[in-house]
């Protein structure tokens, strides 16, 4: 899109330009899907400038993750399924073959080939079925109290993050808990809190797995961790806004409804 390579500090050009590109990509009948090249920061600034209802009504596949989480919520809230997927910058580093295979399969309206990727680790056993929602933890909490807030009720909730210190992982999980956004959640799929355990501080860092277990382990719903999505080296593409079954004992997330949103497929 015209402004896709603009740069201004930590933003890829001004809000008006970025919003115009995004809106036009959804509005233009010659474009079939919208792929974000990068996250970073800035999607939440666009929300007041976008016609989100028109974007959702377009029925187009929207792909990305990390900062893009803010847009996934707004679109999922309006009934448009989207895909939590690697972006252009994600492929700058070598990946195992199933990363691109999963991405391309979802792009073509097929399954996400999760059977080719490693399973997650069980934290709380059991099975659950629900609509998949969530993404980057910091962006999930940044949505709370706004018109585009994340709501985990009835959902299989995806949670992952990058570069956060241990106490901020705790703070963000506590924010989700205090807001009630996890009330009624059916299950939780934690990816990785990438870089958290490696952060150097004046004291010993608390491993994120311990924090996740302590904060979420008592919710009474199935939970897995280290599921391969998000900021990990190799990531699955995970459709959002459609149903899946979490088998926590097996460490698997299996989509139960087709990716019908590509229409003809």
């Amino acid at each position: 899109m015209p402004s896709a390579l603009c740069s201004d500090g930590y933003l890829a050009g001004c809000d008006a330009q970025r919003a115009e590109d995004l809106q036009r990509a959804f509005d233009d009948p010659t474009l079939a899907a919208v792929l974000c090249v990068r996250g970073g920061y800035g999607a939440a600034r666009l929300l007041p400038r976008l016609d989100l209802d028109a974007m959702a009504a377009s029925g187009k596949l929207f792909m990305g993750y990390s900062d893009i989480t803010a847009l996934h919520f707004a679109l999922n809230l309006r009934g448009l399924p989207t895909a939590h997927s690697p972006m252009v910058v994600s492929f700058e580093h070598d990946k195992v073959p199933w990363v691109a295979e999963s991405f391309l399969s979802v792009l073509r309206g097929g399954g996400n080939l999760s059977e080719r990727a490693p399973a997650g680790n069980v934290l709380v056993g059991g099975t659950a079925r629900g609509v998949v929602a969530g993404g980057c933890l910091t962006l999930m909490t940044d949505s709370l109290g706004t018109p585009h807030a994340f709501d985990g009720s009835g959902k299989i909730v995806l949670i992952e993050d990058v570069g956060e210190e241990d106490y901020r992982v705790d703070g963000n999980l506590t924010h989700l808990l205090n807001s009630g956004a996890l009330d009624g959640a059916r299950g939780i799929v934690v990816g990785e809190m990438t870089g958290t355990n490696e952060r150097k501080t004046e004291r010993e860092t608390v491993p994120w797995q311990q924090i996740v277990s302590e904060r979420l382990g008592g919710l009474g719903i199935p939970i897995i961790t280290n599921y391969p999505f998000g900021h990990v080296d190799n990531m699955l593409t995970l459709p959002l806004g459609i149903e899946a079954t979490l088998d926590a004992d097996a460490g698997t997330l299996t989509y139960t409804s087709p990716l019908a949103y590509l229409g003809s497929e």
Partner: peptide, 15 residues
């Protein structure tokens, strides 16, 4: 960091 200052102000604005 500066982008988080922006993100948090944006959160207050959006709320």
């Amino acid at each position: 960091p500066s982008h988080r200052v922006d993100a948090m102000l944006t959160h207050l604005i959006n709320a």
